[in-house]
Structures are given as C-alpha cells and as structure tokens.
Design a protein around this nucleic acid. Structure first.
Lengths: 230, 230
DNA sequence: ATCCTGTTCAAACGTTCGTTTGAATCATAC
DNA sequence: GTATGATTCAAACGAACGTTTGAACAGGAT
C-alpha cells in the first residue's frame, strides 16, 4: 500500500516531492520522517539527501514548486482584472475574487495534489518553523504588495492599516475554509462535506461582507462619512 | 536564562505546565522535547513522566487546564446575554461578542499565559495530531452546540449549514487575528503591532460583516441566475 | 572494453528522542 | 529516632531521527 500510494512518477525527484507534500500535510513537518517519505515514494532512504541535500531543503522545495505557481496565477488574475478596468480602481470584489478564487481553485484540485498543498500552506502561516516562515515571506512579498495596493486604490476612504488587518482576517477564514471539514466535523458530527463547489461562493460572500463591514466606531474619528465601501 | 524563565511556581506540576504551554506555542508539539520542557521549568527530566505519565498526557493536560476555563467563560457570557434577553432571540452581535470577546480577552492576557495558550489553540484546529483533535472535539462539543443554537434562533432565515460554515470562517479569522502580527509582518515589513486593544473592535466588525453578508446567490432559490458572485 | 557521470542501494554513523530505573532526598506520622 | 510514602535525581535504556558512506549499478561517449 505504501509504495503503491506514490504516484507512478517518472523520476525519483518527483516521487519524493509528491510523497513529502502529502505526508507533510497529514502529519506536519516535524512528525514526518525521511523514512516515511522515502517509504511512501518507494525510493531509497538516501535519495532525499542525494536529490535535495537535506530535509529542510526538501521542505523548501515542496513549497517553492507550488507557491510559485499559485502566486503566478494570482498575479495573472489580478492583472486580467486591471486590464479590463482600464486604469480605474478595481471593485473590491474583483480583487478578493482574484486572490482567493485562485487559492480555492488550487484547493479544489485534488487530482494533482493542489488540495494537499493548500491545506499545508494554510497551516503554515501560523506555524512556528522559522526558516519556512521566512521563505514564505519572501515568496509572498510581491504578490501581497500588489494586492494591497489594489485594495488601497479600491477603498481609499479606509485606513490602510485597517485593510491590512482585514486582509489578514480573510486569509484566516480562507485557511480554515480549506482546512475544511476536518475541523468542521469537530463541531457538527454529521456534516456534509460533499460538493466543494459551493465553498467558493460561500467563502466569497463571507469575505466581502467582512471586508466591507462598517469601520469600528473608534476608528471613525471625526466624520460620519462612513458609507459601505463597495 | 532557561531556568529563570519559568515562573516561580510553588510546585513542580505547575512549573511543567507553564513551560510546556509556552514551548508548545513557540515550537509546536513534535518539536518540543521533554528536555526542553524540563530545562525551562527547572525540574528533573523524569518529572514529566512522574507527574503526568507521558508526553501525550502532558499535552492533554495543558489543553484541558485552559480550555475548560475558556469554555466556561464563553458559556457564562452567553448565558448572561440570554438572561438579559428574557427568552427573546439574541442579536447576532451579542452572540459573536460573547464567543470571540472571551477568546480575545484571554488572548490579551499576556500576564498569565493566556495569550500563549490562545495562539497555541488557534493553530491546533487545523493541526494534525490525532488525539489532540479528538480531545478538542469533545471539549468543544457542548459549547459549540449552545452557540450554534443561539445563532440558529438569531438568524432563522439563514440555512443552518450556512451558519455553520460562517462560524467556521469566523474561527479562522480569529485564529489569524490571535496568531497576530507574526504572520502580518510577513506581508507588511513595517507594522505596528502595538495596542492590542484595537484588535477586538477590528475583528468584531469584520466578523459581523461576514456573518451578516448576503447569502451566496445560488443559495437564494429565487432565480436570477448569474455569473461570478459579486 | 573502458572510463565517466549520474543514480541507487544497504549499512552504518552520531544524535536526540521519550521513557525507565533505582538510589537519594524530603516530609510527615509514629 | 525511625519508618513510610511521595518526590527528586543522575544515569541509562532502546528506538527513531537526519545524515553519511562507499560500493554497486546504469548507460553513453570515447
């Protein structure tokens, strides 16, 4: 079973990456041993160190492979909207849909392990592994900056710090959405986790509702301006 | 430094619990060794096994100690509101404030390690450790049921499944809010993480905006089909 | 056939893990 | 004081960890 689990991959490298991604998701980084990885991949124990150098380098590679693709798609989605807008500020809904829509699309891709990766990624923001977090920051820097700028333009009346926080909150909601029904089953024993198609509109409604919520009263310093940013 | 870090506690048991809670938060479960724990607690290595039996039992105890207090406070806050309402359905804002207000209050308590625990807890929903998750489910069952019932009454026109999902999303947002600025700094290098007082109204606005957002269109059986959800 | 380069393999490396042991120490009651 | 039970301690246990080693194997190019 363990050997057969690995995708029938052409080369050893890819088999290791696939097995590692899956196991990291299931057990976490620390609890996943090299012997588990090589066992599931059906390769020799030394293969990881030969092809990647170390376990840490393998972790980094698992992330890089997917994250670059994910962020490339995110930027592409944003740029597509910006091209349509012709210089005008984008609607917040378009920006949010570009970022989180791409995320959920990858999360829905169970075929090529995208779902596995997204659940792993969601847990990683708050995970303590130092060098993974730093690597994540570097890979995310440009993308987040671009999306934040788009949001700043879209919501000029909202303090930037507030937008930053709300984006943070949205990331949390998405993370749990993708971590998905495992956590939900904790609450509601009998839960229907079928039909992940519905997740996207569900989450999008929630995110936009949160993003466009009235500002906390104390932030509305002087004026009564506060109109729902739409 | 390592010995002095431990709170000057009367008995060995409490010193171990404090050190373990802090270290689990910082490094995760697997990456925290017994020697790290006993080292920081300033007790003998064998003390953990003597007082708790095993590392797993210690983890469980770390959770139980705090979680029971947290959930007790949550229920108390809910019941206080219900007493005021005199049988009438509660406003969603009151329910959300009861649950997440108590959570953030504990998260703000850096004095007694509450902040440490909440960050640990936030990561744990999506963490893979099997028996921790199961334990979490048991401890949460009653509280979540009570809050969900309150929300069902408060929002009778919203499908229950939708409320469940949105509660799930809210938990995610809260988790990231508490995990806090560490993750935020990944995005915005220069970030002002001072003044956690502002976090509560910030988060509350976002959560309520998400909870009360319009339902995704496809859930509104009333025709007018369209493309992407605005 | 030979050399070279890339890859796989079984075996072992030293380290750290959670746990156990048995003696030493403490507190309390007799 | 001495006996008794609870706690602490230094030391060691076997197992699992990530990594390294050196030989074996593959397939071209010369």
């Amino acid at each position: 079973m363990s050997e057969a689990t690995a995708k029938q991959a052409p080369n050893t490298r890819a088999r290791i990456l696939n097995a590692a991604e899956s196991l990291f998701m299931t057990h976490g980084f620390e609890a996943t041993s090299m012997r588990m990885i090589t066992g599931q991949a059906g390769v020799n124990l030394a293969a990881v160190n030969y092809h990647f150098g170390s376990k840490d380098a393998l972790i980094q590679e698992v992330f890089r492979r997917r994250l670059m693709e994910l962020n490339r798609d995110r930027l592409a989605a944003l740029e597509a909207e910006e091209a349509l807008a012709n210089g005008a500020p984008l609607k917040p809904s378009k920006i949010v849909a570009a970022f989180f829509g791409v995320s959920l699309k990858m999360a829905a891709d169970t075929e090529h392990g995208g779902a596995t990766f997204m659940r792993l990624l969601g847990r990683t923001y708050t995970e303590p592994n130092e060098f993974v977090r730093q690597f994540l920051a570097e890979e995310y820097a440009e993308v987040v900056q671009r999306f934040m700028n788009a949001l700043y333009r879209a919501l000029p009346e909202v303090p930037r710090e507030e937008i930053l926080w709300r984006f943070h909150f949205m990331m949390g909601a998405m993370s749990y959405a993708i971590a998905g029904t495992d956590a939900l089953k904790l609450f509601a024993g009998d839960f229907d986790d079928k039909d992940p198609t519905r997740l996207m509109p569900r989450l999008m409604s929630f995110l936009l509702g949160g993003l466009r919520a009235p500002l906390p009263e104390e932030l509305i310093e002087s004026r009564t301006i506060r109109r729902d940013a739409a």
